[in-house]
Each structure stands twice: as C-alpha cells, then as structure tokens.
Simulated assay, not measured.
Amino acid sequence: MNPVTGLSLGRIAIGVASLANPSMAAQQMMLDPRSNPQVPYVTRLFGTREIALGAATLLATGKARRTLVLLGILVDAADAATGYLAVKDGSAPVKAGQGMTAVASGAVVAGFLGLRTGKTLTD
C-alpha cells in the first residue's frame, strides 16, 4: 500500500474514533476531557476534518489528489507545530504535546513519501 492510501485510511479511522467516542480519543491523545469539558467538542471537530481529508484524498485522482496530499501535509505540519506550542505554553502535558507532534510529523513524512514515489496520482 502506498503511503498516501495508508495515511488516508488512517485519517478516516482516527476520525471515526474521534466522532464515535471523543472522550476516549482525547484520552488516547493524553488529554483530560474531565478537567476540560470542551475537549470532546474539539476532538469531534478534529475527527470530522480527518474523515473529510482522508475520504477526499482517496476519492480524488490526478492533480486533485496531489493537491489534497499537499493540503494534508500543510494540515499535519500545523498540527505538529500546535503540539510543540502546547508544550511550550503549558496548554497540554509534555507527553501529550510530544506525542501529538510525533504523530503529526510522521504524517508529514508519509505525505512527502507518497509524493516522492509518484504513486499519489495512480493509487
């Protein structure tokens, strides 16, 4: 499976989990929905975005798919920066911010690998 297809399917799976059980998904991200009742709301927003981006990328072909991969890379880079800033400003526990930064950075790498292999336009 090429990296773009895997990343897209992963986005959809994470998105579905975030919508179906936002508190559990937040806990998996090492966030505490009990101390912050807005966390499930934000987790659902995140889930919806992930499903939309993953599904759109899977359904797109040609230049549109490449553009969606680039958009995904930008979104994931912003997520990585957000994780870093959350640690820096204390808005998330260190382990949570580091974990979110690592996962988002991995997604950036997967997106670039998909572009590099050239399979983003055919698979």
Results as ranks from 00 to 15, higher is better:
Pro3Cys: 12
Val4Cys: 11
Leu7Pro: 00
Leu7Asn: 05
Leu7Arg: 09
Leu9Asp: 01
Arg11Cys: 04
Ile12Asn: 08
Ile14Gly: 02
Gly15Ala: 03
Gly15Cys: 04
Asn21Met: 14
Ala25Met: 14
Met29Glu: 04
Leu31Tyr: 00
Asp32Lys: 05
Pro33Asp: 07
Arg34Lys: 04
Ser35Ala: 13
Asn36Cys: 03
Gln38His: 14
Val39Thr: 13
Arg49Gln: 13
Ala52Ser: 11
Leu53Ser: 06
Ala55Gly: 01
Ala56Lys: 10
Ala60Val: 10
Gly62Thr: 06
Lys63Val: 07
Leu68Gly: 00
Val69Leu: 07
Leu71Cys: 11
Leu71Ala: 13
Gly72Ser: 13
Leu74Trp: 05
Val75Ala: 14
Ala77Phe: 08
Ala77Met: 10
Ala77Arg: 01
Ala80Trp: 02
Thr82Asp: 09
Gly83Ile: 06
Leu85Pro: 02
Ala86Lys: 04
Ser91Ile: 09
Pro93Trp: 02
Val94Ala: 11
Ala96Cys: 11
Gly97Leu: 05
Gln98Glu: 15
Gly99Glu: 04
Val103Ser: 05
Ser105Trp: 08
Ala107Ile: 01
Ala110Arg: 07
Gly111Cys: 11
Leu113Gln: 14
Gly114Asp: 04
Gly118Cys: 07
Lys119Trp: 07
Thr120Ser: 14
Thr122Asp: 06
Asp123Leu: 04
Asp123Gln: 09
